[in-house]
Amino acid sequence: MSVLLECKAVCKEYRQGELRVLALQGISFFLEKGEAVCIVGRSGSGKTTLLNCIGGLDRPTFGEIILEGKPIQNFSEKNRLAIRRKKFSFIFQESHLFPFLSILDNVALPLVYRGESWKSARQKAYLLLEQVGLSKRVHQKARWLSGGEAQRTAIARALISEPDLLLADEPTAQLDNATSREIIRLLFLQKQAGRTLLVATHDPVVEKNADRALHLEDGKLLANP
């Protein structure tokens, strides 16, 4: 397998008033294509910050993030947008669906942002909603979904742009056990489809399903198997 992404000594420093917070301290690891890796750590350990830096939502203060051989950390906003559109997709802890849109439109959105027509985007969205078991509720407004349904919709939304790397930030944190299992199953199905998965979690079931786990503590990587 070839390397999809590599982090080299990634550091992230925040300023909270007078206080300097080192959220990430020299994180180095790599991800191979088709691999499922989880980042494990307590709250505040830097999992979300690391995912944000990798996904181009935030810039590291130091270090390199190399995607398919190209360092992306200093990319212009335009190039970072292009990467977000073509390479990465995000699943957040909360589903962050647009409550005033239907489930179908929520899933179709990433394609519309990329310039596809609503009609074509909705057709693709429908197929994905079928896969996550929500095809009978496509016209329902997102505000009326349960936590599990919302997260399944968020997974469909992340998959619609056919990303190389799926970044998930504690996708099961706010769900009950049964719903969590369903979400984990759906997520790891993507590995079988050849996608690379990077999941921040403290759910042991996720860790068990992953190929390997990266342990973060106070912004430092403890283990790199």
Binding site: G55, L57, E77, L81, R84, R85, S89, F90, F92, H96, F98, L109, P110, Y113, R114, R157, S161
Partner: peptide, 16 residues
């Protein structure tokens, strides 16, 4: 504000 951030993360440009 979070919707805006998520929209950007999903590929919405600032212009959009």
């Amino acid at each position: 504000i979070r919707e805006i951030a998520v929209a950007k993360a999903m590929g919405a440009s600032s212009q959009q």
